[in-house]
Design a protein around this nucleic acid. Structure first.
Lengths: 212, 212
DNA sequence: CATTTCATCGGTCTAGAGACCTAGATAAGA
DNA sequence: TCTTATCTAGGTCTCTAGACCGATGAAATG
C-alpha cells in the first residue's frame, strides 16, 4: 500500500499539532509538511508536492486559504486539497469549492472520518461534511418558490421556455397556441415578476435555480 | 436514545432481506416496513410514517423510485428518503435529488456507512457517496470555457452584462460608451456564438456556468 | 512600414417585443 | 347561481433589438 503524503496548513500551531499527532498514528499516511500562511503554503507545496493538503480557510485574520488553494491547484494539479475549517457559511463553502478544493470538512469531524477523507482524497474522491452537503444541495435545488409560485401553471411553463431561449413564435408552436396568446402570457409574467423584458425573466429563472 | 424507524423499498426481496438483516442488529434502528413497488411504497409510508426510507430507484423495470420519492416527500415532509441504488449516472442522480431525496448512496456502501447515513438522515443531514458528490460538484462548477474564449475581452464583459439582464442603454451607461457601440458588440457576440438574440446569449452564459 | 485586430461610432431598415385594452370559454369555488 | 381565475385570442401602438452598411483611431504584429 502506497503511503499518502499529507501537508497541513493552519495558522494555529496547536491545531496542526493536533491533526499531525493523530494522522501519524496511521500507517499509510505521513505528514510531510506544514505551513501557517497562504504564502508559505504555496511555496512549501511547490517544494514537497504532497498528495493531499489539509487547508484551513482562515489564515492571518482573513480567509486567504482560498487564494492558496487556487494557486496550488493551478501549479500542482495532482495535489488534492481538503478544506478543514470551522466555517460553514455559503460565503466560505462555495468560493472554496470553486477554487478547486476537492473536499470540505468541518473541524468537528471525527478523526476516523478525517482519515477516511484523506484516503478518499488520494483517490480523487470528494467528501463533504453533512452540513456542507446540505448547503450545496439547497444551493442547487433551490425550491421553485418565491416569485415563481405567483405564476399560473401556464405562465410557469412559458417562463421555462423563455429561459431556454425560445422566442414567442417558437413558444406558440411548442404549446400549440397563437402568438398573441403567448404575448399575453409573457406580458403577465413580466408584470407579475416586475421585470422589463424576457431576457431579465430568463436571468431570474436561472438565478433562482428554476432551470436544472 | 430514540429508535429510528426505517422502511425499505426495493423490488428484489433478497435485497430487502439483506439490508434488513443487518440493520436489525443495530440497537437504535428498526425496520418497520417494506415495499416492492412505487404504489405500495407510497401507501405503506402513509400508514406507518417511518423516519427514514431506503429507496431503490429501479422499481418494476423503470425508475419509478423518483415518483415515489416525490409523492412521499409531498405527503410526509418529515420523512427523510435515502436513495440506495446501483446507478450513478447524472440522469439518475439529479432527478432523484430534485425530487426531494436527502441522501444518495450507491449499493457498494459498507454496512457501517449505511447505518451512519440512516442516523444522519434522522437528523436531516445529507450523505452522498463520493462518486455522487463528485458528479454534483462537477455539475455546479463547470469550467467557463468553450465558446466564451472566442470573444474579445470587451465582448465578454458585455455578455456578462447581458446575462445580468441589462439592456443596451444600461450597458452603454455602465461602460461609458455609446449605444451604437454596444449594439455593434452585441451583434458581433451573437454572430460569433451563432445565437439569435440577447436572451439566448444570457441563457448560454448561465448554462455554461459563466455567471457565478 | 503595412497589415490586422479591436474598440469606437454613425445611419438605415425591418421585425419582434411588449404595453394596453378588450373579450369569449371554461372551470373552480363561494 | 354568481363570481373569480385562467387560458385563449385579437387589435393597436411604440420602442427596442438586431442586421447590414461604412468609417476612424489605436495598438499590436508581421
Amino acid at each position: 500500500m502506497k503511503i499518502i503524503r499529507v501537508m497541513t496548513v493552519d495558522d494555529h500551531e496547536i491545531v496542526r499539532q493536533g491533526i499531525n499527532s493523530f494522522i501519524n498514528t496511521q500507517e499509510n499516511i505521513r505528514i510531510v509538511g506544514e505551513a501557517d500562511s497562504s504564502k508559505s503554503a504555496i511555496s512549501v507545496a511547490k517544494t514537497i508536492k504532497p498528495d493531499v493538503i489539509l487547508m484551513d480557510l482562515q489564515l492571518e485574520h482573513h480567509h486567504s486559504g482560498i487564494e492558496a488553494t487556487e494557486a496550488i491547484k493551478q501549479q500542482i494539479p495532482n495535489c488534492e486539497i481538503i478544506i478543514l475549517t470551522s466555517y460553514y457559511q455559503d460565503d466560505y463553502i462555495f468560493p472554496a469549492l470553486a477554487s478547486g478544493a476537492l473536499s470540505y470538512l468541518l473541524k468537528d469531524v471525527s478523526p476516523v472520518d478525517l482519515v477516511d477523507a484523506i484516503v478518499k482524497a488520494a483517490n480523487k474522491q470528494t467528501v463533504l461534511s453533512p452540513i456542507v452537503a446540505n448547503r450545496i444541495l439547497k444551493e442547487h435545488y433551490k425550491p421553485a418558490i418565491d416569485p415563481f409560485i405567483s405564476l399560473t401553471e401556464r405562465e410557469q411553463a412559458i417562463l421555462k421556455l423563455i429561459a431556454q431561449g425560445l422566442n414567442n413564435t417558437e413558444i406558440s408552436e411548442q404549446l400549440f397556441i397563437s402568438i398573441k396568446t403567448v404575448r399575453s402570457h409573457v406580458s403577465n409574467i413580466l408584470s407579475k415578476l416586475q421585470l422589463r423584458d424576457r431576457t431579465q425573466a430568463a436571468v431570474m429563472a436561472w438565478q433562482q435555480g428554476i432551470m436544472s
